[in-house]
Amino acid sequence: MAGGVRKTVLIAGGGLFFCLLPWAAHYFGEQYLVSLFTRILIYSLAAVSLDLLIGYGGLISLGHAAFVGIGGYVTAIFFQHSFEAEPLAGIIPGSENALLVWPLAVIVAAAFAFLIGSLSLRTSGMHFIMITLAFAQMLYYFAVGLEKYGGDDGLSLYSRNQLVGMDLANDVHFYFVCLFFLSLFLLISDRLVKSRFGLVLRGAASSSRRIHALGIHGRRYKLICFIIGGAGAGLAGALLANQTEYVSPGLLHWTMSGELMVMVLLGGLGSLFGPVLGAAVYLLLEETLAMYTEHWMVYLGPILIVVVLFAKRGLFGLLTHRD
């Protein structure tokens, strides 16, 4: 079977699997699978958005969790102000309406991505990695310092957002909402990387010197990529806040950024659909290892090193390539 056909089969099969999962869970009486896979969908969304940065923009950001956290906090803060009927900063009313809050989460995350990206993209290589990490950590400490919104302890939502025509409190409804957003983001990303913008972006990632010689400002393309990735992560954050009905500074912590990166690599860098597989495998592995031993990280660490050293293309690559 040719690589392209395999890829199509794999994606179609994956899509079918995700569509049927709630019924399967119901049939087998394993309802918790729905919320487990909701988590997988949301992390997939975050991982795909990171894959746009790393796999297509060549931007090794170690601060991607910041945008997940921002999305989550925007959602939670608006919830809190709505719940306590006390306008934000005295003028902006809170809201529990998903159609309002989620786009806002995306916009705020994108705005932060613009700020952080403009500064970080002044550098490249190792500097870029460390600077994105440092900025994310700065926001982490900022969240810890937000006494009004729970500080270290985080903030509870008491219930999920409202979405017309849907009952988000129902796990299956919420599952399909997440599936919808993941699919939408995958579609957008897939078009994006094949578009003129995407071509230039991939070119700039491959050789910024050469792109420059073609008369193109590669950095602008990278910045837009960084912003789009941040926006995707912001949406993931809003969804995650709804799923767990809770946000905490841990969302922004750099280990979260690292885990997202692991998902991307595990699934396959620069493959968009790979990170979905990566997120699923990572979270399931975590779940399974944790069942046998509380010290699962001691196994996960070396597994990670082995994957890095020996399986460059990730699982998606293994499944779609011959040789």
Binding site: I60, L62, V262, L265, L269, G301, P302, I303, V308, L309
Partner: peptide
């Protein structure tokens, strides 16, 4: 650098 980040993260 990406490989280095991930492997040392594993460490």
């Amino acid at each position: 650098h990406l490989d280095q980040v991930l492997a040392t993260f594993g460490l």
